[in-house]
Simulated scan of single mutants.
Amino acid sequence: MGSAPGTGPRTESTSLPRWAAPLPDAVEDLGLRLVWLVVALNLGGTAFGFWFYRHQFAETPLVMWPFVPDSPVATLLAAAAFALWALGRANEYVTVLAFFGNLIFGLWTPWVLMVFAETSIANSGLAMHTFLVVSHLGMVVQALVLHRISEFRLPAVAVATAWYTLNLGTDYFFPVVGPEFPGGFLPVKPHHTWIPVPRDAVVAGSTTAFQVAALGAVSATILALFLSMSIRLLKLRSNWSRS
Rank of each mutant, 00 (worst) to 15 (best):
G2Y: 01
P5G: 10
P5Q: 04
G6F: 03
T7A: 06
T11M: 01
T14E: 00
P17A: 02
R18M: 10
W19H: 08
A21M: 04
P22S: 06
L23Q: 03
P24R: 03
E28P: 05
D29P: 07
L30Y: 15
L30N: 11
V35R: 00
N42T: 09
T46Y: 04
F48V: 12
G49M: 03
G49Y: 06
F50A: 10
W51N: 09
F52P: 07
A58N: 05
P61M: 02
P61H: 01
S71Y: 01
P72T: 07
P72V: 09
P72A: 06
A80L: 11
L84E: 13
L87F: 01
G88T: 05
E92I: 12
T95L: 00
L97G: 07
F100V: 12
G101T: 13
L103H: 04
L107Q: 01
W111N: 10
L113T: 08
S124T: 11
L126P: 06
H129W: 09
F131W: 05
F131K: 02
L132I: 14
M139H: 04
M139P: 06
M139C: 14
L146R: 03
H147K: 00
E151M: 03
L154I: 15
V157G: 05
A158R: 02
V159C: 07
V159W: 03
T165S: 13
T165H: 00
T165Y: 05
L166S: 10
L168T: 13
T170W: 01
D171M: 07
V177W: 10
G178D: 15
G178Y: 13
G178M: 11
P179I: 12
F181A: 15
P182T: 12
F185M: 12
F185W: 15
L186A: 14
H192M: 14
T193N: 09
W194D: 15
P196R: 02
P198A: 09
V202E: 07
A204D: 12
G205P: 06
A209I: 15
A213I: 09
G216C: 13
A224D: 03
L225Y: 01
M229D: 05
S230F: 00
L234P: 08
L236G: 09
W240S: 03
